[in-house]
């Protein structure tokens, strides 16, 4: 009997404490049938990578509103790759300037979701990516 579930880590790296967005997304992903591991605020990239490993997640969703995304995101990706999790989908939500988004995608972020993104778009993105699309 198979019972595969998509597991998503929702984390807030850095020092801003604005976790409303992360919590709304966590809840929406749960309602979409995913298993969501929520880690809370003020996580270091090391803590996030470690949680992603122990939880064997398929997706890491980062919510950053502090402006520190150019430092934090590449660090998380570097750590994930170093520990053998190159296949994990990394998503970023927050206020990210377009030119930064381009660079971050080049650095391994799979998608960037800015203000106005609906939960349904994120859920669809994850489902499509997990189906191998």
């Amino acid at each position: 009997m198979k019972d595969s579930q998509i597991r998503v880590l929702v984390a807030k790296p850095g020092l801003d404490g604005h976790d409303r967005g992360a919590k709304v997304i966590a809840r929406a992903l749960r309602d979409a049938g995913f298993e969501v591991i929520y880690t809370g605020i003020r996580q270091t990239p090391q803590m996030i990578a470690e949680a992603a490993l122990q939880e064997d997640v398929d997706v890491v969703g980062l919510s950053i509103l502090s402006g520190a995304h150019m430092t934090l995101c590449p660090k998380v990706i570097e750590l994930l790759h170093a520990q053998g999790q190159e296949d994990v989908l990394v998503l970023l939500g927050g206020i990210i300037p377009d030119e930064d988004a381009v660079q971050l995608k080049a650095a391994g972020v799979h998608a960037v979701f800015g203000p106005g993104t609906t939960s349904a778009e994120i859920i669809d993105y994850i489902r499509t990516a997990m189906a191998g699309g």
Partner: peptide
């Protein structure tokens, strides 16, 4: 959730502080 089949696993929020310790492994 008996309705969506999804789950929000939040116990890790209270279990920070063991980061970088190879003697600890936490799984939700």
């Amino acid at each position: 959730s008996p309705f969506s089949g999804g789950a929000l696993l939040g116990d890790r929020v209270r279990m920070t502080g063991h980061s970088g310790d190879a003697g600890v492994f936490i799984r939700s």
